[in-house]
């Protein structure tokens, strides 16, 4: 503690205006050089590295250069580095207790960089949020959602929660849940569905579509029709194939039932009023 106090006194006596000016110049120069080096790295390697790797290399280059100049500036101010490091240790301990969350986020960020479950530009689903990764920073990951909102998710949250990377593999399966009436011929429905998948160019030929019998539902036979699509065409296929199925079912008279409910009024309540309208009165009402 005495050593720390004596160092602080020494710093106070050595802090001259010129030294402060020199240190400031060093920090500004360091920041400028680090920025130039970072931009140069981007220009040189943008074609060879992925966006994720490029961001990582640029960040390392920037902070290493800046750190060297900051250390020089600190020396210029009269600080002795080894003493400062010792002081920094004590300080870190104190700050560590006060900022556990930030430290946890930084460490989580390091794990994320090492594990690499996603890269910049990937589409991910974290909790209820789905969006494109626009940056992976020291404390958090920034997403742009599809309704163009900026979402910041702390690294610690990502490490703790389950994460789905939607853009990891080039193809995706679309599972359509369908219900058909009990009176329908399942074989015929199967043919109709496979024919529609065959005619839709976005639906992959291989892996082949599959039809899974899900069970006898309350008011329908439940089927799952699974088709594959290129990742980029997933949404387009999701729309087009469902519209085509509805149109074709309507054309062929295949019924998609909705839940049926029988209302029992019981003996306690009055009977429900029923009004019968003739065709003529109906027409009169219309006119």
């Amino acid at each position: 503690m005495d050593q720390f106090q004596s160092t602080l006194e020494a710093i106070g006596s050595n802090l001259h205006g010129f030294s402060v000016f020199k240190a400031a110049v060093l920090v500004v120069t360091g920041w400028l050089l680090a920025r130039i080096a970072s931009l140069t790295v981007r220009r040189l390697f943008s074609e060879h590295l992925s966006r994720h790797d490029l961001a990582l290399v640029r960040r390392v280059v920037f902070y290493v250069i800046l750190a060297l100049f900051v250390v020089s500036a600190v020396r210029e101010l009269g600080f002795k580095l080894h003493v400062l490091m010792g002081a920094a240790g004590i300080l870190t301990l104190a700050i560590g207790f006060a900022s556990q969350t930030s430290a946890s986020n930084i460490i989580s960020g390091l794990f994320l960089l090492g594990e690499r479950p996603f890269s910049i530009g990937d589409v991910v689903k974290i909790g209820d949020t789905t969006g494109e990764v626009i940056s992976i920073d020291m404390l958090s990951v920034k997403l742009r959602t599809f309704d163009n909102l900026f979402v910041r998710i702390p690294n610690e949250t990502i490490i703790k929660s389950s994460l789905t990377t939607l853009s990891k593999f080039p193809i995706r399966r679309l599972d359509l849940q369908l219900g058909i009436a009990y009176k329908e011929d399942i074989e015929r429905v199967r043919e109709v569905l496979f024919d529609l998948a065959d005619k839709n160019p976005l639906c992959l030929d291989e892996p082949k579509p599959i039809l899974i019998f899900q069970g006898f539902g309350e008011s329908s036979i439940n089927l799952q029709f699974s088709v594959w699509a290129q990742r980029e065409q997933f949404l387009e296929l999701r729309n087009s194939i469902q519209i085509e199925i509805k149109k074709q079912f309507d054309r062929l008279g295949i019924e998609i039932p909705f839940p049926h409910r029988t209302l029992y009024a019981g003996s306690v309540t009055e009977p429900l009023p029923v009004r019968i309208e003739s065709d003529n009165s109906h027409r009169r009402e219309k006119t």
Binding site: F169, P170, I171, D198, N200, P201, L202, C203, L204, D205, E206, P207, W228, A229, Q230, Q233
Partner: peptide, 20 residues
Amino acid sequence: HRPSDTWFGPSTMEGEMCYA
């Protein structure tokens, strides 16, 4: 004539987008 898309590869993780 727009051919149908297809996947050619040993698994759904490894392969190439092709036309059928």
